[in-house]
Amino acid sequence: MAERHYDVAVIGGGPAGYTAALYCARSGLTVAVLEKLSAGGQMATTDWVENYPGFDEGINGFELAQQMERQARRFGAESIYGEVTEAELSVSPKRMVSSEGVITADAVILATGAYPRELGLPDEGALRGRGVAYCATCDGMFYKGKTVVVAGGGNTAVEDALYLSKLCRKVYLVHRRDRLRAPASSRQTLEGNGVEILWNTRITGLRREKTLTGVELEDVASGARRELACDGLFVAVGRVPDTALFAGQVEMDGAGYLKADESTRTSVPGVFAAGDVRTKAVRQVVTAAADGAVAAHFAEEYLLALREGAEPL
């Protein structure tokens, strides 16, 4: 496959990536979004986005993603459904090797987002889709009328447990601490919806036949062990930024998020970080979109300086 060159390459097609592409394209830059599956990232697995302004009744996350892609495309942004396997960010032009060929670009916007953290238990990978799930709104329907366990104690775990309580026969929330990392009213709401919370408890193993049949639990305080039969386990124990590809090239914090301030500039000139992948306080669709616009602005500024032969910022 031939090498293709763009002014700007965007890696990741979530709300940050497609907003960056929209702004770049409207500025007259050539831009390609490299996306391994389809538009939307984490947003595409959100059943109903209720806090993105302008959609007063809310909107399905996948549909919103499709609209963002179409909007960017209307101004000339391209989508390449390719998985990036190598990225050389310090050379000029910057070079990405993907399953759809080699792409070079003068500036790169990294918008790879984050993916759900695994519990790290034996057989967890093998049981994925066979009882172990990471997205309640995506997979909840498979467990209609069944017994499920939600692992975690933050906002996502609470929301997942509430969503599942409307579908499932019984929902347990297993949390290793004695309080939730979620609004104070959450506990009451959960219990009011029949969710049974197992405090100070961690999951130490998975029981299986062909699919998941139960989880092994350990009381954190006493060390007492027991088994809980269930059909599904929803893991909601945080997210991991998708930055392994950029290790050693772009500065990161201890958790692997790309270090960049509100300008989205990373430690590498001409490389910008937008959306959930960036070190920031609030990770929402709307802040991801905002990052995309900012990254496009500073990418354009960088390209102007580059073409005038000035030392780029």
Binding site: L37, S38, A39, G40, A44, T45, D47, F62, Y81, C135, T137, C138, M141
Partner: peptide, 15 residues
């Protein structure tokens, strides 16, 4: 039609 992951792969299947 109700399966979110199915919708996500649909653009690639079409392509």
């Amino acid at each position: 039609p109700w399966c979110g992951y199915c919708r996500r792969i649909a653009p690639v299947v079409d392509q």
